[in-house]
Design a protein around this nucleic acid. Sequence first.
DNA 1: CTTCATGCAAACCCTTTGCACGTCG
DNA 2: CGACGTGCAAAGGGTTTGCATGAAG
Lengths: 146, 146
Amino acid sequence: MYTYQEMLSILNNGGYRLTDQRLSLLQVLETFGGSFSALDFEKKANEMEPSIGRATLFRAIDLFLEQGILEKIHRENGDDVYIVGSKGHHHHIICRDCGEIRDIDACPFEKELEEVIQREGFSSTIHRIEIEGICESCRKKGEGKN
Amino acid sequence: MYTYQEMLSILNNGGYRLTDQRLSLLQVLETFGGSFSALDFEKKANEMEPSIGRATLFRAIDLFLEQGILEKIHRENGDDVYIVGSKGHHHHIICRDCGEIRDIDACPFEKELEEVIQREGFSSTIHRIEIEGICESCRKKGEGKN
DNA sequence: CTTCATGCAAACCCTTTGCACGTCG
DNA sequence: CGACGTGCAAAGGGTTTGCATGAAG
């Protein structure tokens, strides 16, 4: 997960202006532990100065996605959520309950994927792998209740 | 990919009413080769009798998804599309260009997934794997042009 | 006949756009 | 100063809802 400084460098190196709004949004990103919706993001952003217009927020999200500062994740329930990005090719495992997301580095599926892609004759492929389940601490909480 | 008869049985066995609208929608499903949007579905459905209200269409889609008659696929560009379902656990490889979708049966990733899930301590997991690329015939078409 | 399904139109929600104004570099 | 970014409010577009009507079993 990128630090504030890394995110800032990404924007700066890309030639994007470091406006108060963008810097404020980056600060907000640092405070998220797991995944969050655009609305979560907006709410938290508007607890600080300067307040951020909806349009600006969504334009920033688009920019951050393009630059890899954010990653978009599609939940089983249909919601789109975001997480702060990180370097390299990786996938995610998400807790359905608390929303925690862990990175899975070093994609363990490369070999099998390559076989499938070869067999089907596809090229220029990208793949998306998401695992959703219940994390250990949520499972323990759940057992307490039932 | 389910046949008309199989889809019909699923509804029937589930105790759902076999209304003219639902039967008509199942017939439309048979005519799709690859993926389609809700709007594609509506358009094609309304070329036949009886015509189908938007609400009914979306309620039918929900029902079909629940029953596995349809599967929802999330495209890289953010669009949701549907395909006719098929039996068992499987994944998909999608052509970005023509929308063709092939089933990948016998999930080749089980072993690696199991390792990751164990390592992270998750339970009750589901996973979603989608591969997107250019299929062979679209690649050839593309080479002709460039 | 009773429950489940349909159709219409309006409501909804999140996201995007147009445009005048502001500001980073 | 010029290009890029912002804010507002309104439009957009796909999906969902409320409610009266209709049909399946």
